[in-house]
Design a protein around this nucleic acid. Structure first.
Length: 613
RNA sequence: GCCCAUGUAGCUCAGUCGGCAGAGCACAUCCUUGGUAAGGAUGAGGUCACCGGUUCGAUUCCGGUCAUGGGCUCCA
């Protein structure tokens, strides 16, 4: 058995979904069914990295004997440990700690499991001055607890662990950050060290390369390099300035969005940015969403609010006339700009801002239409996302939160409708208990980008509450008044955020239909200027975003410059091309398409733009 | 908001242990008219984030503010 496990490179074993240390094999009889848990399994990685975090804590304790330890779990991509120290850690400290860890790994100390009574453990940690451990122990209900020891380092831990410290082959400490004890800002701020560990040096290297790639694709960096957007100190944090290049891409996205919504029988709306405070009181936002809203402004003695959401406006439009059951479903869509207060520490480039434009829509329908409408929205969403090259998703169903409006029964019903639609569509999803918005349950879709990272974009929310609050009605076939229900939905979420994600997803190399400049014409010498301008005018007249670089520079310089700006197509024009009436075409990736007429080029471009390639 | 770090030319970054600041790229002018990722020369460009303190003197030291970054919490 042990032999087999060694061969399988087991880190621990599993039986009936319980994980055990390899050292506990003798507790099982020969007939026990034990599965090896290896690094390739999530459970195995977690055990491995959790062990690495113990070793890190050991190293920190050695270097800083006064350190008080909090918690140190494995994460998706690595591990961390929180410490309470006398002085702030520096980057140099990380190197020192790493070195110490390498020593501990080199000593190959076995991880030893020890079980003792909770009271004994409390005693032990209290004597050691480990208050955080004592606090944790106080909340454990079991009579006995397990400790893990390697060398002279002991930690409270459920386990399991790798057999010995030598098992950790490749690790790296990555960053230092502040973190509240138990994530609560009322508690003391601790120092967190993040690190990662792999069972092969090669995998660690690959991960570090991945981190480099993430850095290179950072939309804030590319936003500057490609002159897409900026944030100005003079204007304010979290407020986005769209530069011409970024605005061109945004317009292409918006045009696409409007066209598709019109085709899908949505009506496009516009609404103002402020409304009377009273409206927000009526909608419930003032009670349930105030912490994200700005302070009211006074206009002629009345209070007005900057809008954090678009729904009340769409509701007013619904209410502006009598509605019949024949009108439903009524789908109102708007690229609506909203403003939400975000604490300064959470702002992040385009991904977390204070003013943003939602690709919002509200569908007013009868209760029996919900499922059908949600299905339609799901289809529509997946189509839109696919257009941007997103074809992998994580889907979540969020249920009733603590702060909510409406009755538990209406929540039941709407959650059921969402569930049904997801199941009919055959989408795998997980349930996020308590994560719904205050007015209703929701489906969230997270897209996976080209690096496999998940981003929350789309959200579909059922609302039984606002129709009630605003006393919405429609005349039914029975001649009586009925209450419609509302579905709120955003597909891209916010244009700012979605754009930021796109920049990273495409690494700044936008597909032709989105590229700010689609073709750059590069002349070899000044005598081709006139011809180049003529070609430019023709392409522009056909709607192709074309630029001509007539600078007094060598062709190599111009190619380099346009390639760095990630222009998808370059048209090189020298004497030969002028003579033949051609353009020599080259793609951003260096692929040479050879010489062709301007009509052929146009055909090629238009085809690619049409397919949104 | 909180902890830590950072803020020097349009961009990327040097630098000053306190004595009015420098490179590369970009920009401008000139030379060069060159065929698939950087031709050459010259020049212009900075309230060293902002406010205050210490000092004969502060970009440098100290304090505060603002902003950015890594996180915590929250979310589109």
């Amino acid at each position: 058995m042990e032999e087999a496990l060694r061969k399988a490179k087991a880190i621990a074993v599993r039986t009936d979904e319980m994980l055990f240390d390899l050292s506990r094999l003798k507790e099982f009889g020969d007939e026990a069914r034990l599965e090896p848990v290896t690094f390739t399994l999530k459970e195995g990685r977690d055990i491995y990295r959790h062990s690495a975090s113990h070793i890190m804590a050991h190293a920190v304790k050695t270097l800083f004997p006064e350190a008080r330890l909090a918690i140190g779990p494995a994460t998706e991509e690595g591990f961390y440990y929180d410490f309470d120290l006398d002085r702030p850690l520096t980057l140099e400290d990380l190197g020192m700690i790493e070195k110490k860890m390498a020593e501990i790994v080199g000593e190959d100390r076995p991880f030893r499991r020890r079980v003792l009574a909770k009271t004994e453990a409390i005693d032990l940690f209290r004597k050691a001055g480990q208050d955080y451990k004592v606090e944790l122990l106080g909340e454990i209900t079991d009579e006995s607890v397990s400790l893990y020891e390697e060398g002279d380092f002991v930690d409270l831990c459920r386990g399991p662990h790798v057999p010995s410290t030598g098992a950790i082959r490749a690790f790296k400490l990555l960053s230092i950050a502040g973190a509240y004890w138990r994530g609560d800002e009322k508690n003391r701020m601790l120092q967190r060290i993040y690190g990662t560990a792999f069972d092969k040096e090669k995998e660690l290297k690959e991960y570090l390369v991945f981190l480099e790639e993430v850095k290179k694709r950072d939309h804030r960096r590319l936003g500057k390099e490609l002159d897409l957007f900026s944030i100005s100190d003079d204007i304010g944090p979290g407020l986005i300035l769209w530069h011409p290049n970024g605005a061109t891409i945004r317009k292409a996205i918006e045009d696409f969005w409007r066209d598709e919504h019109t085709k899908a029988d949505y009506k496009i709306l516009f609404s103002p940015h402020i409304a009377k405070l009273n409206l927000w009181k009526k909608s419930g936002h003032w009670d349930f969403y105030r912490e994200n809203m700005y302070s009211p402004m006074e206009i002629e003695g009345l209070e007005y609010e900057l809008k954090p959401m678009n729904c009340p406006f769409h509701i007013q439009i619904y209410k502006s006339g009598l509605r019949s059951y024949r009108d439903l479903p009524l789908r109102y869509a708007e690229l609506g700009t909203v403003y939400r207060y975000e604490r300064s520490g959470v702002l992040h480039g385009l991904l977390r801002v204070r003013g943003f434009t939602q690709d919002d829509a509200h569908i007013f329908c009868r209760e029996d239409q919900i499922e059908d409408e949600v299905l339609r929205v799901l289809d529509f969403t997946l189509f839109i996302l696919k257009t941007f090259g997103f074809d992998k998703y994580d889907v979540y169903l969020s249920t009733r939160p603590e702060k909510f409006v409406g009755t538990p029964e209406s929540w039941e019903r709407s959650t059921g409708a969402l569930k049904c639609a997801l199941e009919l569509k055959g989408l795998a999803y997980s349930v996020d208990p308590g994560e719904g918005v205050f007015y209703g349950p929701k489906i969230d879709i997270k897209v996976k980008d080209s690096l496999g990272r998940a981003w929350q974009c789309s959200t579909i929310q059922v609302d039984f509450n606002n129709p009630e609050r605003f006393d919405l009605g429609f005349r039914g076939s029975d001649g009586k008044e009925h209450r419609p229900i509302m579905i709120h939905r955003a597909l891209m979420g916010s244009l700012e955020r979605f754009f930021g994600i796109l920049v990273e997803h495409y690494a700044g190399v936008f597909p032709l239909w989105l590229a700010p400049v689609q073709v750059a014409l590069l002349t070899i010498a000044e005598r081709q200027t006139e011809y180049a301008l003529k070609v430019r005018e023709k392409l522009k007249a056909e709607g192709v975003r074309t630029e001509a670089n007539l600078d007094n520079e060598k062709i190599g310089h111009k190619i380099r410059e346009a390639t760095i700006r990630k222009v998808p197509y370059l048209g090189i024009i020298g004497d030969k091309e002028v003579l033949e009436g051609n353009v020599s075409v080259r793609r951003q990736n260096g692929e040479n398409l050879g010489s062709m007429t301007e009509e052929d080029l146009l055909r090629l471009l238009k085809e690619e733009i049409k397919h949104r390639g």
